[in-house]
Design a protein around this nucleic acid. Sequence first.
DNA 1: GTGAAAGCGCTAACAT
DNA 2: ATGTTAGCGCTTTCAC
Lengths: 346, 346
Amino acid sequence: MQSKSNAKKRETTIAKQLAEELGVSVSTISRAFSPRAVIASETREKVLQRAKELGYQPNPFARSLITRKTNIASIIVSDITNPFYPEVLTRLTDSLQELGLNVMLFVSTNANDSDNIVSQALRYQPDVLIALAATVSSKAASKVTEAGASMVYFNRYVPNESVYTVTCDNYLGGQVIADFFLDNGCRYPAFISGLADATTNRERWKGFSERWLERAVSEPRKVEAGRFAHEAGFNATIKLLAGRVRPDAIFAANDLLALGALDAVQKAGLSAPKNVSIIGFDDIAMASWSSHSLTTYRQPVNKMITATVDIVKSILADKAQPPAAIHIPGELVVRSSAKIANMGRG
Amino acid sequence: MQSKSNAKKRETTIAKQLAEELGVSVSTISRAFSPRAVIASETREKVLQRAKELGYQPNPFARSLITRKTNIASIIVSDITNPFYPEVLTRLTDSLQELGLNVMLFVSTNANDSDNIVSQALRYQPDVLIALAATVSSKAASKVTEAGASMVYFNRYVPNESVYTVTCDNYLGGQVIADFFLDNGCRYPAFISGLADATTNRERWKGFSERWLERAVSEPRKVEAGRFAHEAGFNATIKLLAGRVRPDAIFAANDLLALGALDAVQKAGLSAPKNVSIIGFDDIAMASWSSHSLTTYRQPVNKMITATVDIVKSILADKAQPPAAIHIPGELVVRSSAKIANMGRG
DNA sequence: GTGAAAGCGCTAACAT
DNA sequence: ATGTTAGCGCTTTCAC
């Protein structure tokens, strides 16, 4: 049957053609494409130019079969409904591309799947793996090290394991927000928790509640929204407002939850910051829209990406770098969803 | 220097080990992993099980070097600030994974780059390329065909070229929105245009303006926002409202623009739908939030993804499938940002 | 500085 | 049903 459409038959490979046409050997062609190979620069020029005309580039599969470097970075994400991540994903990919890495993308839809997805990713022997907002089981994590690969966790922290981690300083963020509420006269704080297991969620709560208890007697309430989503934040807040003591300060584990909280407050006939102050976490684009004007703790995306890329570079250079956890401070962006006390000047 | 960290030295390859241990040849190992190869099922079982224990999987590079199938799908995206696309990206990736394809991700940051990015993608000889919300030059497009690969355009239309295209029926959407405005008594329509070159943008405007002119005498105004972004929609609307004749109906080329328009209307001391009706396009998650409650034309994401995956399947099965353009109708989701006329019943 | 030869890990004829 | 052989497209010793 084999119709004519099977274009790739036997055309003596472009590389060989090229070699013949230029009167050199295939090795020379190869050397022309290896920046560090010894070759007369004129020869290289000649080869490279003609190759460009022909649209020839060395086959990366054949190449990595022998070099044992794939130039592949695998990014593993779980479901990214949070608008914070798409930007991170594209910018990270862009940066990695500039490093000469090609990105393979793996999404793990349900948490159970993550182990599976990791071994899938490992098949391509990536030079480096990056877990983006994905929680990876320690079983899967050890598979990675077994395979001799390195993994960088972006915005997830793996406790008790020696791994590369880049996160915003979530604990500090929680503290800063507690301070802000306290400094501005709030008394009855509540925390809306997103994905309970996520380390981001836990650290933010930890910083917030610990700082609060250091400075005040009241204890922050905590309500589980279950997910990082607008609707979840909305529902949690409705529940919160129906309680006996209405909170006057709500810290939501991320902006999506906080925006849900804002809507719930309005739905309840109240308003922020008049009746209740609301602060989120991330500083996604929507937070600054005038319809929301959300006070939030901004994640230092640029620095986080730079730090990640630096780690990747060091891994590429020498796998023996010791893993380190990097926590980068963000900054509180004050908008109108949280009240500011009238404090006398001077 | 070569420190000990260079874990991969010479361990006779797992495949050979396996073969020896099981007393079979490497070909048999290979056959066990080829679902359609002839091999005794017991032998296969035996191999597969032991392989699993050892964590062995065939090296995809070596494999595709000979099979000339890479099992790779390359997705090319441009900057995806529109929250519509992350979801598409992850779900598409997920579906492709289920098909046994691995996804390579390429982002083209500035438009000039797109040609470059395409040839980058082509190096890996993907079984199929998918352009996601990315405008690819026809030069780059022909490179793809030259390389014997197939490309599917998601939400972009390439005029005058025979390619695989899956889009929402943008023209129809524009018409439906014009009809809605007209049926509900609007008289002075305006269109907020996003990325002027994007085919989505153009088709929506075309459907909208043509239908309007069919049914009414007034001609829709059109203002260029330049990008698909909240701020751009905001600014465009401010300009629009400052004009001599204030529009009573605004169709924004996508939801992000429409949400910006909503904020601008409020900023101007007006309100939707009282003073002006606003309709967007996409139905992103935020559109349904009570703080926005945006009437919008919903893109049939599920169907669009399914259609794309179906095309990919057919390409995988036989490259000679004739290219086709698929335009899938969406549906108008009526919320409170656009007024509904009191029309008598019965 | 360059060519010849070997071989990366695998699959696909061709035997048996 | 399985083993043997050849070779995918490249890089890398090793000669020269």
